[in-house]
Computed example of a mutant assay.
Amino acid sequence: MSEPPGGARAPALAGLGDRIRRLRLARGLEQDELAARAELDREQLVGIEQGGTTPTLDVLAQVAGALDVELPRLFTDAEPGPAVMVLRGNEVPTVDTDGMAVQVLTPRAVVPGLYAARCRLSPTSAGVRPVRHEGHDWLYVLSGQLHVDFEQGATTLRAGDSVSFSARVPHRLSALGGVPAEFLAVGAALLAPPRGED
C-alpha cells in the first residue's frame, strides 16, 4: 500500500463530523448521550462533529458502535450498493493516523455487518492502544511481523499467518522487526449489540 499523497487525508475525512452529527440526530441522541455510549468526553465528540479534531481509527470504531452502524458508514453518504461492487485500488482513500494507515475496502455495506480493510502499521508507532468492540475480527498478515497482545497472552504473526478472535477481547497491535506490518483486517460486527454490557 503506497503512502497517501499530501492531500488524500482531507477527502477521506471530508464530511465526517457532519455525517456523525446527522446519524446522531437521526437516532434522537444528544451529544452527551452519544459520548457516553462511545466512552468519549463530550468535548472530544464536539470537536469531531465540528471538524476541529482528527479522530483515531479506534475512536471512530467506538463512535460507529455507539451509533449502531458499521465503521465504513461514517465515511460515505452513499446508500448500500448493488450485489456486485468493484473498488479500484487507486480510488480507495487512505486514512493515516498515529502510524496506522488504513484503506477501508467496504465503503458501502454490501454485506451487512461485514467490513474489510487493508492496514499498514509503522514500526516506529507506539502501536494501537488496547481496544475492544462488538463482533469478531480476523487478521491476515501480508508482510512484516504483526504482534497482537491480548488480555491474556500474545502472538506474533508473519506473512501468511492469521488470527481470529472475539473483538470483545481487548487487543493491541504493534509492528516488530523494524519494518511496517501490512495486513488485512476483516470483521463481522453484531448489528444489534447487547445493551448494558461493557
Rank of each mutant, 00 (worst) to 15 (best):
A126R: 12
D32E: 02
D32N: 00
R108W: 04
T54Y: 13
L40D: 00
G99H: 09
Q145G: 01
R118G: 07
R108V: 11
P170T: 08
G196F: 01
R118Q: 13
R88E: 12
V111S: 15
A167E: 03
V63S: 01
A117R: 13
G47T: 08
V104N: 15
H136N: 11
R42L: 00
P55S: 07
M85F: 06
V104S: 15
V46A: 11
E39N: 01
R42K: 09
E30N: 10
T54W: 13
R195E: 04
R21M: 02
L184D: 13
M1I: 06
A181R: 02
Q50N: 14
E182T: 04
W138Q: 13
G89Q: 09
V179G: 06
V86D: 04
S2L: 09
Q31V: 04
A126E: 15
E49I: 06
P170A: 09
L29C: 02
V163W: 07
L142H: 12
Q44K: 10
G178M: 03
S162F: 12
V110K: 01
F165N: 04
S174C: 09
L157C: 03
R24E: 09
R73E: 10
R37N: 01
R27D: 04
A109I: 00
L142P: 05
E134M: 08
A167S: 15
D137I: 06
P93A: 10
V163Y: 08
E39Q: 02
A185S: 14
S122E: 05
L142M: 08
G47N: 12
A175C: 04
D149Q: 14
L121D: 08
M85R: 12
A36R: 00
R132I: 03
V84Q: 02
R42D: 00
